[in-house]
Design a protein around this nucleic acid. Structure first.
Lengths: 230, 230
DNA sequence: GAGTAGGGATTGTTCAACAATCCATCAATC
DNA sequence: GATTGATGGATTGTTGAACAATCCCTACTC
């Protein structure tokens, strides 16, 4: 016997939105977002309406709706009468993103004691996935697992709005990641620190965990800004 | 002699954006946002494309671009094939907004010690403006001064991204404010508490200030949710 | 009363057109 | 030689019309 008699109905209901219930503009935005976070669309690249619309198989108007969405997510910038471009982060942007991350992620750790067990489990799962990907030499996957880990930390706040903020912050940060020379050199040192962080949380020592997270973010920020040169 | 030889050039560059550099879609979005935050467009109201486009003097396509912006700001909701509506907050939404506010505003207070003096001055200015508006019986203005006060608290973080998050949170919250019966009854008790909060900050007692702010937000949230009934 | 077949109204999307703006190029001026 | 001015092509900004898809109300049937 499966769990509840209506479990499959719930699954259908949950997946309902993802089917047709979305406009083409939203789907094109998803497509572009994927290309950007995967690093295929590099910062500074221009997105011509006519050409891109033809490539995506949508009209200019629909494409422009997609652009508005991604501009609000700070992945694209819109220069009036000039077009839209993939955002290029300044060193100031990177600093501000880390400022916001420190606030939201540290708050997450402070709420670790009262967080539901499945939220804590997600922390461990993300770190484990990162370690496994590292063992397999799949460094891009290490990167996404790392991002999942930090989303899970912030999710300890238990706030959908905080979740969304962090999702946007980390998507933005990917714009900077792709200017790093080697994904491996950037991510490898953090594998052990992530594991240590989870251990501290599971041991209930949130104070030490927060101190460790701050140090973690400080060094990552410094490394990123150093690579930026700006 | 004026300061640097290029100082006026910098001023021009800084003011450059504010001129004509905005699309009609953005201007229409501003218009609608004003109507919503002023409470003239009530939650649940439907915004028909044809009719509204005619009223605003823009085409449907341009109007739809405006809609996308406001949907991302969570002031409108878009139901596929049904249209866009002014958002109606649930009790859960209100709770989540206050959860996020607690995080960001308390963090602001914790940074009060290292914040620049003009940021602290803005706190005092907002509270004073609220007191003056109350004396004049202008209760809507008391409300906007209160919002300015809380934006100033969060601004102590010194992060543009946090500023934007809080701006959106408070804009959303206005959707709930307008369901309150009397603006006066809602805002009046908080005038004295705001003043006390500023005093604590100026005295450097950020711990007491944070405690007071939490209590403040707790009661405001409870009051709002009680009025909601949901 | 429950179910169901129109059918009008609204949204989703495309297309074509034109004005406004940008940008590279070249010419003219001092 | 460097700055300014004019030219023209390319791209964006915005509009209007068109049509398919969908929703929702209504009238009808049983």
């Amino acid at each position: 016997m499966t769990a509840a008699p209506e479990a499959w109905l719930d699954r259908i209901a949950a997946a309902r939105d993802d089917l047709d219930r979305s406009s083409t503009a939203a789907r094109v935005a998803d497509l572009l977002r994927d290309q950007i976070t995967a690093g295929l669309l590099v910062p500074g690249a221009r997105l011509p309406e006519e050409e891109l619309g033809k490539a995506a198989g949508v009209s200019r108007n629909t494409l422009r709706e997609s652009f508005r969405l991604l501009v609000k997510e700070r992945l694209l910038v819109h220069e009036f009468n000039r077009g839209v471009f993939v955002r290029t982060l300044t060193a100031g942007d990177v600093a501000d993103i880390y400022r916001a991350r420190r606030i939201l992620e540290c708050e997450g750790l402070r709420n670790a004691a009262t967080a539901p067990p499945e939220a804590l489990a997600r922390l461990d799962a993300a770190v484990t996935a990162g370690e496994r990907a590292a063992a397999a030499g799949d460094w891009p996957e290490v990167g996404t697992a790392d991002i999942r880990f930090h989303k899970a930390i912030a999710a300890l706040c238990g706030s959908p709005r905080v979740d969304e903020m962090v999702r946007h912050l980390l998507a933005e940060l990917r714009l900077a990641f792709h200017q790093m020379v080697s994904p491996r050199d950037f991510h490898e040192p953090y594998l052990a620190r992530n594991r240590q962080l989870v251990d501290l949380v599971q041991r209930g020592d949130t104070t030490a965990a927060e101190r460790e997270l701050r140090a973690y973010l400080d060094t990552a920020e410094a490394q990123l800004i150093r690579a930026y040169g700006t």
